[in-house]
Nucleic acid binder design. Structure first.
Length: 553
RNA sequence: CGGGGCAUGGCGCAGCUUGGUAGCGCGUCCGCUUUGGGAGCGGAAGGUCGCAGGUUCGAAUCCUGUUGCCCCGACCA
């Protein structure tokens, strides 16, 4: 209807309901209780937790006739927290897990890929409430197991990866990604197989200190017209060859990248990141580190404001909270104490050589902002990393006390003391799952729904115009319905058999039953959409055969 | 918000360079035939060429502005 806003037509809606049913069954199975909040919410709770501002432009905001602010809920941590605060007061009421399957609203900067990424979408969100970390761990593990069952039943390939808690706040977090080459998320896994993480969550270990006692004192050299790493390396090799005869490479240079952090309150803070010259800053990784601040480019106007910064020749000398500019300076963890670098001298056309980290300069800390590449060592030592793409289908978080503390959710413990409840937050993209399952289950002829999700159990095709054929088809359909098997009956008289067969394949119902030519010999055909295999069954045995097919698969 | 592209019967497109009475495929409607792998023949309906200005005797075509949509990047289930 409009970007990111879609209408569910009858068959698709039935699939959506099937996904909801599976999610409900598995949530109920871990003892979660379903409820339903409004999507239209007042501003105040979101103000209390700071998310009215943090969510920024991603939030649909509206104003009522009296001028009060409202929002369309993007996620409901606040509402669940307040509901529990209202209803419970004792540790005896916990542990507790609540969930809802509800329409969410986010004003996405770029909705795309149809229902995979809408501005209005259906999500299952659940929240666990516990008195201590052990309880939270148990609730988290229960959800993790339930999600494994849900995604197994939905029938697509997925991986579970470590994730950043991001704007939700909190600590431990994992994502369930449907593997897809055109996915929006990049994740990495180790070749040995024991490590998988969203690129944002990859933690590069701090490099061990190296011995620098033999390194000569730092010295500044002329390197005219070398504002980029590439030109610097070329110039250094031509005019300042290394003592050991090995050529300079980009990895020998220390690149200092400036960005502007934009905080939720609008405050702008410059930040400098030092990293090996052969790596780029990954903005996604950086933003995950600095959330809820956003990252903006450091533009010409910003340079004009900081005249101490010489574009293209920025070095550690000018940076750091104690440096000339006072700009916070964070290093990539690959930059070891004692390592030797070529870097900017803060003068046009000049660079510093033999600059040693820890001897000649220090930084204000480290940051996980450099890009992750194929072939990088896995953080846990299990081989090297390879990158792949996926679509985020589920996300589980240990929130801790971010929301309970902000909104004052406390209960009395065994000793009669108030303790702040610790929370977990768990989401499944329900409408997204429909698109994702369709994406993963089709062939050249059309869709192939997994049996549990199929809009109906059986697609019954009556071919031709023969009255006996249609009468039989209708009777079989009625008998199947009476046995609890849902049927889509194609009784179009004017369409040729070929058209009906193609349509049946396009719709993708897993079992196709054809009443037609064979009826003269007392036979009805059963086709399996996925394998294409077909068999003929006597008319009087057709109902049993189809029921067995539908139930048995 | 940055970059690119497209707006022409219901759908998909051509026409635009070089202004001259808008065309093709599919679909739709009517009739007859056809019916196990997207039928055939005959007939018919249907378009302010996204919108607003401008140039011109004349604009789908050239110019200016504007809006909408699609795709690629930074955000998220």
């Amino acid at each position: 209807m409009s970007p990111g806003i879609y209408t569910w037509l009858p068959l698709g809606l039935r699939v959506l309901r099937n996904v909801e049913r599976i999610v409900r069954e598995e949530m109920d199975a871990i003892g979660a209780q379903e409820l339903l909040f409004p999507a239209l919410l007042p501003r105040e709770p979101y103000e209390s937790t700071g998310r009215w501002a943090e969510y920024g432009e991603g939030l649909f905001r509206l104003t009522d006739r009296k001028g009060s602010d409202y929002l369309l809920g993007p996620t409901h941590e606040e509402m669940f927290t307040l509901a529990v605060k209202d209803l419970f007061g004792s540790y005896k009421d916990l542990p507790l897990t609540l969930y809802q399957i509800q329409t969410k609203y986010r004003d996405e900067a770029r909705p795309r890929a149809g229902v995979l990424r809408g501005r209005e979408f259906v999500m299952k969100d659940s929240y666990s409430f516990d008195v201590d970390g052990a309880g939270l761990d148990a609730a988290y593990e229960a959800h993790r197991a339930a999600y494994v069952r849900i995604f197994d039943r939905l029938g697509f390939d997925y991986v579970i990866v470590k994730a950043m808690a991001g704007a939700m706040g909190g600590s431990k977090s994992e994502e369930f990604l449907a593997t897809a080459d055109n996915g929006e998320d990049t994740y990495v896994r180790s070749t040995a197989g024991s490590y998988a993480a969203n690129v944002e969550a990859v933690v590069v270990p701090q490099a061990d200190p190296v011995d620098c006692s033999a390194v000569p004192a730092a010295h500044v050299e002329d390197t005219p017209d070398t504002p980029t790493i590439e030109t610097l390396v070329a110039s250094a090799n031509a005019n300042h060859p290394r003592a050991d005869g090995r050529p300079w490479t980009a990895a020998d240079t220390l690149k200092n990248v400036l960005v502007m952090l934009v905080h939720p309150d609008g405050r702008r803070e410059p930040l400098a990141i030092g990293l090996p010259g052969d790596r780029e800053v990954d903005v996604k990784r950086l933003e995950a580190q600095v959330a809820p601040a956003e990252v903006a480019p450091f533009d010409e106007k910003d340079f004009a404001r900081h005249t101490d910064l010489v574009k293209g020749y920025i070095g550690p000398g000018a940076l750091g909270e104690k440096g000339a500019t006072g700009i916070r300076y964070l290093l990539d963890p690959r930059v070891a104490v004692g390592s030797v670098w070529v870097t900017g001298a803060d003068e046009p056309g000049r660079h510093v050589f033999d600059l040693v980290h820890g001897r000649d300069f220090t930084a204000d800390g480290t940051i996980q902002a450099a890009e992750v590449r194929d072939g990088d060592p896995a953080p846990d030592g299990s081989g090297t990393l390879v990158t792949a793409r996926g679509i985020e289908m589920g996300h589980i978080f240990q929130l801790g006390t971010k929301y309970s503390a902000a909104l004052g959710l406390q209960v009395l413990d065994q000793h009669g003391k108030l303790v702040t409840v610790t929370m977990g937050s768990y989401g499944v993209g329900v409408s997204r799952a429909v698109g994702c399952v369709a994406e993963g289950n089709h062939d050249a002829a059309g869709l192939i729904w997994p049996r549990e999700l199929s809009p109906v159990d059986v697609h019954l095709v009556a071919t031709g115009k023969d009255a006996e054929v249609h009468a039989t088809a209708e009777r079989v359909a009625a008998d199947l319905e009476a046995r609890g098997v849902s049927v889509l009956l194609d009784d179009r008289r004017q369409a040729s058999p070929g058209v009906k067969f193609k349509d049946a394949e396009l719709l993708g119902v897993p079992t196709i039953v054809v009443v037609g030519k064979g009826l003269a010999a007392g036979l009805i055909e059963i086709k399996d959409r996925r394998t294409g295999s077909r068999r003929e069954v006597q008319v009087d045995g057709i109902v049993e055969a189809v029921v067995a097919e539908v139930r048995g698969a």
